[in-house]
Structure formats: structure tokens, C-alpha cells
Simulated assay, not measured.
Amino acid sequence: MSGEISKDEALTDTKKDVTLDVMMHKGILIAKCEIDEIQKFEMRDDDVWVCTFPRSGTTLTQEIVYLVMTLDFEKANSVQLDDRFPIIDVKNDKFPYYRGVKHVEEMQSPRMVKAHAHFDFLPEQLQNGKGRIIYLARNPKDVITSYFHLLQWLNELRDYNDTWPKFFNSFVEGKALHCPWPRHVLKYWERRNDSNVLFLKYENLIKDLPNGVRTIAKFLGKEILDENVARICDHCSVQNMKTNENVNLSYWREFKNVNDEAGGGFINKGKSGVWKHILTPEESEKIDVLLKEVQEAGLTFDT
């Protein structure tokens, strides 16, 4: 009958309305979260935090850390990573695993936590050396292209950044979510020699994954057999990660529309240099300005 919609159509319309809320904190756009509670968060000595700017190898590193810490492949293949290794700096009841600070407080040790927070938005105790931080940095030319495709896939682009030119400009100008990118990276780079900080580059990690697993294990004080290194590397291969429904964010389809017609998903090619086939020479030069800012502090990336 004209004017009526089916149950499925109504559900689709409802799912379209599910989006992440954002907020400004000290001039930086971040996901809505309990930022004051995060900064006062009571750390434990064996807490492990994986911190990144989005699209810098977060999921890969989380899965490596989880398996180095537990060697529990059965759980890794049956329980969502967002449940095993929750993000703390997103609080949104519309999403099943974005449960905020209280949930992390109540987790059993060793707690493994994800954050996209700038260094000075982390718990004060963590900043002062209690707990461990593993930080991943990635060439911003790959970050920006991957970031846009992710937000397209998730239907999370807003009016102010819903086209590539608008998104690109917001990133370069330091106005996109979690930007400015140089500030984010440099705050952790400055602390790279702290005993509780491991600063890694995504490009190095994927170039030699077994070495990356051993480096992470050593930092976490874990002895690891070669056979387990090989098993972790196989589990964390790009192909396995793309098809593993416990890490590829496919569960979002249960409550939110995603756009499979977009140029990418949650896990894509898993390699560096993809930007060379996407960015124009003019766009590449604009991001070179951001790269120069971190190069002046001694941080360089393979291009």
C-alpha cells in the first residue's frame, strides 16, 4: 500500500541514524567519551595500552599483543576484539562494546586497552610511567587515504567532510577527528625513550612481522617460542584478518548500515605506499608539510 514501509525498511532507516558522537576537548575533535574520568583512571602496573592515530595499524597490534600476552588462539577466534581489548576513549550506548571507563576498571588483569587519545589525554598515571604504552605511527599519506575509505564504509562522514576534498582539507588543516596528526605523533615520539613506551612504525612492523612480534614480546616481558611467533604471524596475516569476523568489524552490520560500495572496508590491503595510486602530486605535497614537521623532530617515514 502506498505510504507504508516494511519492517526491514524501518529497521534500515533506524540503523542509518546510528553514528558516533563527537566532542571538542582542548581544541581537538575527539569521539565523545568520559575524558575527565580517563585522565583520573587508576592504572595497574601490568596494564597494556595500544595507542595510535586512527588507521595506523591499531587492530593488527592489538591482536599481536593479545596473543603475546595470552596465547589464547581459541578466544581470539571466538570473541570480538572490541570485547577482549576495548577502546576506552569512546563511550556510546548505541554501540555494543563502547562501554567506557567503568567497564575497563572492572576488567581482570592484565588489562589490554585501546586508545586513539593524544598523549596528554591519557591517564595521568600512565603518562607518569605506570602501565605500558605501545604506540604505532604510520606515513600520513597512507593514513589519510585509509581513514577516508573507512569512514565511507562506516557511513560516518558528516556534512563538513563528506567528500574527499573536504575531508582532505580538514585533515591537512588539523581539524579532522583526532587531528592535528603531527601533534598526535610527536607527543608520543617525545616519550619514545621512556621505559614504559614502545614506539613502532607500521611500515617496519608489516615489513618483518616476526621481528615485530618478538619486539613486542620483549617489551612486554614475555618469552615466546619460534613456533608461537609463526602461529601469531599466520593468525595476523592480512588475509586472515580480513576474513576473521572477530577483528574485521563486520558485527557493526547488526546495528548499523555500512557502505560496501565504498572504496574500502575496515581491513584493506595491509601494506604501505597505497597512497601513490590515490593522491595527486598536489595533495602529496600538502602532506609533505606535515611530514616535514615531524622530520624536524627526527621522525621519518618510508615513502
Rank of each mutant, 00 (worst) to 15 (best):
T12F: 15
D13W: 14
D13Y: 08
D13A: 15
D17G: 14
V18K: 11
V18W: 04
V18I: 15
V18E: 05
T19N: 14
T19M: 11
L20H: 06
D21G: 15
M23R: 01
M23D: 12
M24I: 08
M24F: 04
M24C: 10
H25W: 03
K26G: 13
I28W: 03
I28C: 07
L29R: 02
L29V: 13
L29G: 06
I30D: 10
A31Q: 03
A31N: 11
C33A: 12
C33W: 01
C33L: 00
C33P: 06
E34W: 00
I35R: 06
D36F: 08
D36N: 11
D36Y: 08
Q39R: 04
F41H: 09
E42L: 07
E42Q: 15
R44I: 05
R44E: 14
D45T: 09
D45H: 12
D46Q: 15
D46H: 09
D47T: 11
D47W: 01
V48T: 14
V48P: 05
V48F: 01
V50R: 01
F53Y: 15
F53L: 10
P54E: 03
P54W: 05
P54N: 09
R55A: 12
G57A: 11
T58Y: 05
T58D: 02
T59R: 01
L60Q: 05
Q62S: 14
Q62R: 14
Q62V: 09
E63K: 02
I64L: 12
V65N: 04
V65L: 02
V65A: 07
Y66E: 05
Y66I: 13
L67V: 07
L67S: 12
V68A: 04
V68T: 11
M69W: 00
T70P: 13
T70H: 12
L71M: 11
L71D: 12
L71Q: 15
D72S: 02
D72V: 00
D72L: 00
D72W: 00
F73I: 10
E74L: 09
K75R: 15
K75E: 10
K75Q: 13
K75W: 06
A76D: 11
N77E: 08
N77I: 01
V79Y: 07
V79N: 07
V79F: 08
Q80G: 07
Q80M: 13
L81I: 14
D83E: 14
R84D: 02
F85R: 04
F85S: 04
F85P: 07
P86D: 04
P86K: 04
I87F: 08
I88W: 00
I88V: 08
D89Q: 06
D89L: 01
D89A: 02
V90M: 07
K91W: 03
K91E: 09
N92I: 08
N92R: 03
D93Y: 00
D93N: 14
F95S: 10
P96R: 10
Y98R: 13
R99Y: 00
R99M: 08
G100K: 02
G100W: 01
V101L: 01
V101H: 08
